[in-house]
Deep mutational scan, measured.
Amino acid sequence: SLSVDNKKFWATVESSEHSFEVPIYAETLDEALELAEWQYVPAGFEVTRVRPCVAP
């Protein structure tokens, strides 16, 4: 099958004044980091952490 098993990760994104967490959907932690950097670094943010979303 061609289905992709995307998992939810939380990326911590920082600017000079703010820090916030955004959801990233990817297959692996490395891919989540790449996606977060691709989305947020060009906008002037720094991705400081990516972690798996742990269900309660």
Rank of each mutant, 00 (worst) to 15 (best):
S1K: 12
S1N: 11
S1R: 10
L2P: 10
L2S: 12
L2K: 13
L2G: 13
L2Q: 11
S3C: 15
S3K: 13
S3E: 08
V4Q: 11
V4F: 08
V4W: 07
V4T: 12
V4I: 11
D5N: 15
D5G: 15
D5E: 12
D5Q: 14
N6P: 12
N6Y: 14
N6A: 14
N6T: 14
K7P: 09
K7R: 09
K7F: 08
K7N: 07
K7H: 09
K7Y: 07
K8W: 15
K8I: 14
K8L: 15
K8R: 09
F9V: 00
F9P: 00
W10S: 03
W10L: 08
W10H: 03
W10D: 00
W10V: 07
A11S: 01
A11K: 00
A11E: 01
A11P: 01
A11W: 03
A11N: 01
A11I: 12
T12Q: 05
T12Y: 06
T12C: 08
T12K: 06
V13P: 00
V13G: 01
V13A: 01
V13K: 00
V13I: 15
V13N: 01
E14G: 05
E14I: 14
E14Q: 14
S15F: 06
S15E: 03
S15Q: 05
S15R: 07
S16Y: 08
S16G: 14
S16A: 12
S16M: 09
S16L: 09
S16H: 10
E17R: 11
E17P: 04
E17S: 14
E17T: 14
H18C: 15
H18S: 09
H18F: 15
H18M: 14
S19Y: 07
S19D: 02
S19Q: 08
S19V: 11
S19N: 05
F20G: 01
F20Y: 08
F20V: 03
E21R: 04
E21Y: 06
E21S: 05
E21C: 07
V22E: 01
V22P: 00
V22Q: 02
P23E: 13
P23A: 14
P23F: 10
I24T: 00
Y25K: 03
Y25R: 03
Y25N: 03
A26Q: 01
A26C: 05
A26T: 02
E27F: 10
E27V: 11
E27G: 12
T28K: 03
T28C: 06
T28Q: 03
T28R: 03
T28M: 02
L29N: 03
L29M: 09
D30Y: 10
D30P: 05
D30T: 10
D30A: 13
D30V: 10
D30F: 09
D30L: 13
E31G: 06
E31D: 07
E31C: 06
E31F: 06
E31S: 06
E31L: 09
E31V: 05
A32Y: 01
A32T: 00
A32L: 03
A32W: 02
L33V: 09
L33Y: 13
L33C: 06
E34T: 10
E34Q: 14
E34S: 11
L35Q: 08
A36P: 04
A36S: 03
A36L: 06
E37A: 06
E37M: 12
E37H: 09
E37V: 09
E37S: 08
W38D: 13
W38T: 14
W38P: 03
W38H: 15
Q39F: 15
Q39H: 10
Q39E: 12
Q39P: 04
Q39L: 15
Y40I: 04
Y40Q: 04
Y40T: 05
Y40M: 03
Y40N: 04
V41G: 15
V41W: 11
V41F: 06
V41E: 07
A43T: 05
A43Q: 15
G44Y: 02
G44M: 00
G44E: 02
G44W: 02
G44P: 00
F45Q: 02
F45E: 03
F45K: 03
E46H: 09
E46R: 11
E46T: 09
V47P: 03
V47H: 04
T48C: 00
T48W: 00
R49K: 14
R49W: 06
V50Q: 01
V50P: 00
V50M: 06
V50T: 02
R51N: 04
R51D: 04
R51W: 09
R51C: 05
R51Q: 06
R51M: 07
R51T: 07
R51K: 06
P52Y: 09
P52F: 08
P52M: 11
P52L: 13
C53T: 06
C53S: 11
V54H: 11
V54I: 12
V54F: 12
V54T: 12
V54L: 13
V54Q: 10
A55T: 12
A55C: 12
P56S: 11
P56T: 10
P56I: 09
